[in-house]
Design a protein around this nucleic acid. Structure first.
Length: 551
RNA sequence: GGGCCCAUAGCUCAGCUGGAUAGAGCAACGGAUUUCUAAUCCGUCGGUCGCAGGUUCAAAUCCUGCUGGGCUCGCCA
């Protein structure tokens, strides 16, 4: 599908080539005019009025004739206080509708492959327990962002970083061991900061059932590594499963342990040494990260010889780079907000490209039930596991509700509303709208009407009501909006676009009859409905939600 | 105290490269149903865009300061 702004800008620049000074050219960009209709507007006259010592309106009038000749233009008007409004030519609009009809929901909003590889890393919760409801927001944002970037032609890798090395993992293992050893009639002390969730005894029982005999026959040290391996696998299986239930899948599950055991830390440390950005102090190895914008230097290797997460993070991102990614977009929760500066300093100190790492932080989610804030704790009996949430409200409802606000804003997730079939539930609204359109198509086919596959001959001039024009506007601006959403990394905007489209469809539906005498108007309306449905499906594809044929 | 995020209608939130009268849903009130799905639609009510400066022909949008809320500041990850 065409990016209209780009297309129009190009034609504007050609039309005005001889009328603009070089420094004025960048100002010749159009945007969608505000109130209704399909006009694209150029505010250039007001921007150049001062340097030209002319009234904006006079400049607009002066440029108008040249623009009137553009292929995209139907009507070009100079209006006060100095805008030039460009109404699209009907033939051009019909061509756009044709492009939509010729596309599948998966390809409709897609641009050509650009050969660049981008990784989106998201969720990446420690494999020391099941996913928490809060992880759902990262799952939704990351998965939709990944698909959104694919529409822009990127080769996207979805990755989950498994933090299966280090002190957290040891605590996890020892917490299970404490339970498990009891079952075996042995003793193992519960670590001070051990994990105390009810899933720990469950894991212990599970491992005991599967590996009990083996555990009896091996020495203590080996027992712990068996427990660690088994515990990790069980937890990861659960995590993978609850993400799948939310419609989220990954291309790679990347192990931290793998990094460490395959010498990536050492490699990166050597690199740091070669670049002269490390020093030894108090028995530890430090990175001079303050040279790269950090507010303090960071320890890379602890006094006890163990690598810090800082070193492993450096190794991990260096590894991503070595795997051929031009960029890594990491999606983190608000508790990682303080990591941005140190992480970027790390990238700089490694000599990675300036724009290699992008970090998206999403703010916290508040859950509500019946208008009351839900306190997430086992004591209150409220659900805290993502899997339970998805089971309660449904996959699509969960995805949609996690996208209800921009990642930068905190989010209120109302569990009751998510289950309701009402207007304040966008998931149902989208589904209902699609089913309604599908029903119209069925009726049209039933009475021998044809569903158009081609719109080039569609007489767009028939579409004159505000409802017609509003729907056309939704269709034509779609690619521009999606490109913007991808560029600014704002997946939630796709949900808003879909809801806006659905609203326009329903308003149109209520006001205008589609199935009627076979006239030019009826044909044009049918094209409008079919393209609207296709676009709705394209948005749903990016959002990862399913739209039913009937409800 | 430092860093980052947020502050827009009674509530929850959108608001794209600054542009023409600041939008949506909910809530409140009033309408539409012999009809292609009323699980819908229309209308009314509702705003000093946190405050104060600045830049600009033009600021919710950009800059500075302030106020309030959130997250975060480990040789944990």
């Amino acid at each position: 599908m065409l990016n209209l702004r780009e297309t129009i800008d190009r034609q504007v620049n050609i039309a005005l080539r001889d009328l603009l000074a070089p420094e004025e050219v960048p100002l010749a960009v159009c945007s969608l005019a505000r109130p209704g209709f399909l006009d694209y507007t150029l505010s250039l006259p007001m921007k150049v009025a001062r340097t030209r010592h002319q009234a904006p309106l006079a400049i607009a009038q002066q440029l108008q004739p040249a623009l009137a000749g553009m292929p995209v233009a139907g009507l070009v008007e100079a209006v006060a206080p100095g805008y030039i409004n460009i109404r699209l030519a009907d033939g051009f609009v019909a061509e756009q509708l044709s492009l939509i009809l010729a596309s599948s929901p998966q390809t409709l909003l897609c641009r050509e492959a650009n050969g660049q590889r981008i990784q989106v890393e998201f969720v990446s919760a420690n494999p020391t327990g099941p996913l928490h409801v809060g992880n759902g927001r990262g799952a939704a944002l990351g998965s939709v962002l990944a698909t959104l970037l694919e529409t822009q032609g990127y080769d996207v890798g979805r990755e989950y970083y498994v933090n299966d090395y280090g002190s957290k993992m040891r605590l996890f293992t020892e917490s299970i061991a404490h339970e498990l050893f009891q079952m075996m009639g042995l003793e193992f002390p519960m670590p001070d900061d051990g994990y105390r969730g009810s899933y720990i005894p469950e894991l212990a029982r599970e491992i005991f059932a599967r590996k009990g005999a083996e555990l009896r026959s091996v020495p203590d040290a080996e027992r712990l590594s068996i427990i660690e391996r088994e515990g990790r696998e069980l937890v990861l299986t659960g995590i993978r499963q609850s993400l799948e239930e939310m419609g989220v899948s990954f291309d790679t599950w990347f192990s931290e342990r793998y990094l460490v055991e395959n010498g990536w830390n050492d490699r990166v440390l050597e690199q740091f040494r070669a670049r002269g950005v490390v020093y030894d102090r108090d028995g530890a190895v430090w990175l001079r990260s303050t040279d790269f914008g950090d507010d303090k230097d960071r320890v890379l290797v602890r006094r006890d010889g163990e690598p810090t997460y800082t070193l492993t993070d450096a190794a991990y991102h260096f590894n991503k780079f070595e795997r051929g990614y031009a960029k890594s977009i990491d999606v983190f929760g608000a508790d990682h907000i303080g990591h941005i500066v140190p992480m970027q300093a790390l990238m700089k100190s490694l000599g990675l490209p300036e724009d290699f790492l992008e970090i998206i932080i999403y703010q916290i989610v508040h859950f509500l039930r019946g208008g009351q804030h839900v306190v997430l704790s086992k004591q209150t009996g409220e659900i805290i596991e993502l899997a339970d949430l998805v089971r309660e409200v449904g996959k699509d409802q969960a995805r949609v509700f996690f996208l209800l606000s921009s990642a930068d804003s905190e989010l209120e997730f109302d569990l009751e509303t998510a289950k309701e079939n009402s207007l304040d539930n966008p998931a149902y609204y989208l589904k209902y709208t699609h089913a309604r359109l599908a029903s119209v198509m069925r009726q049209a086919r039933g009475i021998g009407g044809s569903i158009p596959a081609e719109a080039r001959d569609c007489d767009v001039s028939q579409l004159t009501t505000p409802e017609d024009r509003e729907l056309l506007k939704c269709l034509l601006k779609a690619q521009d909006e999606v490109d913007d959403a991808a560029r600014t990394r704002q997946p939630h905007r796709i949900l808003y676009l879909a809801s806006e489209l659905a609203k326009s469809v329903n308003t149109f539906y209520q006001k205008e009859k589609v199935i009627q005498e076979d006239t030019a108007l009826a044909q044009a309306r049918m094209v409008l409905i079919v393209t609207a449905q296709r676009l709705l499906q394209a948005y749903a594809y990016i959002l990862g939600i399913d739209l039913p044929e009937a409800m």
